[in-house]
Simulated assay, not measured.
Amino acid sequence: MATNGIAKKLKANRAKAIVDAAYAGKYMIAGVCCYNLEGIIATVRAAEAKKSPALIQLFPWSIEYADGLLLHAAAEAADKASVPIGVHMDHAQSPDIIRKSVELGGYDGIMVDMSHYEKEENMRLSKELVELCNAKGIITECEPGRINGFEDGIADTEGMEEILTTPEQAEEFVALGIDWLAPAFGNVHGAYGPKGPQLDFPRLERIHAAVGDRVRLVLHGAHEDYFQEQLLRKCIAAGMSKVNINGPVNAAYTRVGAELTGKVPLTTVVEEQTKAMQQVIEQNMDWIMSTGKAA
Rank of each mutant, 00 (worst) to 15 (best):
A81P: 08
R203D: 02
R216L: 06
K275L: 14
K8A: 14
L132Q: 02
T166S: 14
A294I: 08
G86H: 01
R124C: 10
M285H: 15
A191I: 13
K275N: 14
G86A: 04
T157E: 05
L266H: 11
I138W: 08
F173V: 00
F150I: 11
D90M: 00
Q273E: 15
N36A: 10
D156L: 05
I85S: 10
H208I: 01
T157N: 09
R45D: 15
A77Q: 03
K8M: 08
G193T: 07
I18C: 01
M240L: 15
V269Y: 06
M1F: 11
I6V: 15
V256G: 10
A191S: 13
L125Y: 06
V218R: 08
E38N: 13
G257E: 04
Q230P: 05
P197S: 11
A238P: 05
N122Y: 05
I288K: 14
I154P: 07
S94L: 04
V112C: 02
E205T: 09
N187Y: 06
G221W: 04
W61D: 09
E48W: 07
N148L: 12
L181Q: 01
A73G: 06
A252D: 07
I110G: 07
N36E: 12
P144M: 01
I40V: 15
E120Q: 12
A251S: 13
I154R: 10
I138N: 03
L219A: 12
H72Y: 10
L104C: 04
K16F: 13
A30L: 06
G196A: 06
C142S: 07
E272N: 09
H208P: 02
K16P: 00
S52H: 10
V264P: 06
M111P: 00
M289D: 14
Q273L: 09
A251C: 00
M277W: 09
I110K: 10
E118R: 13
N284M: 14
V249P: 07
I29Y: 09
H91I: 01
M285V: 14
N4P: 00
G149F: 06
V83A: 04
A77Y: 01
N244S: 08
Y192E: 01
G149D: 08
F185A: 11
I139H: 03
A21L: 11
N284T: 15
R233P: 06
M160P: 00
A294K: 12
L10E: 04
D179P: 00
E131G: 07
P84L: 01
